[in-house]
């Protein structure tokens, strides 16, 4: 087993532009804000956030803000909760939340809450428990949870719980590790983890570890580095992370590295991308891999950033 090639991953993230991978570029165009969050959080976890000029990033982020208060994936696009959280998270990384009109952003978010407590992702109405997390996490970072109806939001998330202990995208939707992270994260932030059957969910989550040591997101699916984040963070939030085999998971993630050019892929031997590089490094951070900053499992930001938000007011 090799080690984490920190310098190569830093180089990879900084040099994404030089790759001629136009397919990924086109796909990334509208969600550049997520790309910025994945890349910059990874750099921060690796202790290299200063490799970038924060002023330029912040300038660009603020150009992505819509008059409604929400943020778009790129300049001139429409706002969505997905990008609003990423924008706020990146500003938090740089300790620049003060450039925001927090009430304006909070109004945009709380305006997306529906009568039943659920959230739509944007003004056109797609509903998904993922959006409940985005809204709750973002309002929490902005100290504006009082702007939404937390009780209704929590009840909606609880209604997405399944008999296997997991959570789906809507009531009745299949349990999926990504959705579970969102629901458990939202419940953790709002102090509502009593809605989670921790032992049952913990067992379901640790059943996601397959022979190779990697984690899948649903029964009988292939393992993927991104679930290192979703499954692990959920297990940590419900205090059951010791139920998986950590050594084997570390080994699986490290085997997904491109040790020559940097970056991490979904599975060993596949092509790397920024998304999986983030999830791999974040997963290793949760596994307390040496040399990495610790990451907060609910807010998906480095712990020092979260501490700054909540304890240095």
């Amino acid at each position: 087993m090799g080690e984490l090639v920190v310098d190569k991953h830093v180089k990879y993230i900084l040099s994404v532009e030089k790759r001629k991978d136009s397919f990924e570029s086109v796909v990334l165009e509208h969600l550049r804000m997520n790309g910025a969050y994945w890349g910059l959080t990874t750099l921060d976890l690796l202790g290299k956030l200063d490799a970038l000029d924060s002023n330029e990033v912040i300038q660009w982020i603020m150009k992505c803000q819509h008059e409604s208060g929400g943020f778009a994936g790129n300049i001139g696009h429409d706002p969505h909760l997905l990008y609003t959280l990423s924008a706020v998270q990146v500003l938090a990384l740089f300790d620049k939340l003060n450039v925001l009109d927090a009430d304006k952003v909070a109004n945009y978010i709380s305006g997306l809450q529906n009568e039943d407590g659920s959230f739509s992702g944007d003004e056109w109405g797609e509903v998904d428990s993922r959006f409940s997390y985005l809204a709750i996490c973002c309002l929490s970072i902005l100290h504006r949870l009082d702007k939404m109806n937390v009780e209704k939001a929590v009840n909606y998330i609880a209604s997405c719980k399944n008999v296997d202990g997991g959570f789906g995208c809507t009531p009745g939707g299949e349990s999926h590790a990504g959705q579970i992270f969102c629901c458990v994260g939202a419940l953790a932030i709002t102090g509502s983890l009593h809605h989670v059957d921790k032992d049952l969910l913990g067992w379901w989550l640790c059943e996601r570890q397959v022979k190779s040591g990697g984690l899948n997101g649903r029964p009988e699916k292939l393992p993927d580095v991104c679930y290192s984040w979703w499954v692990l963070s959920s297990l940590i939030m419900i205090d059951r992370v010791h139920w998986i085999n950590k050594d084997k998971l570390v080994k699986f993630i490290l085997n997904c590295q491109d040790t020559e050019n940097g970056g991490i892929s979904d599975r060993p031997e596949d092509a790397v991308d920024v998304f999986h590089t983030y999830f791999g490094v974040a997963g290793l951070s949760l596994l307390e891999y040496p040399g990495l900053k610790a990451i907060d499992p609910a807010h998906a930001l480095p712990v020092d950033v979260v501490n700054r938000i909540f304890f240095q007011k």
Partner: peptide, 8 residues
């Protein structure tokens, strides 16, 4: 100076 520059 884009953070995630794109080759369109």
């Amino acid at each position: 100076n884009p953070v995630v520059p794109i080759a369109y």
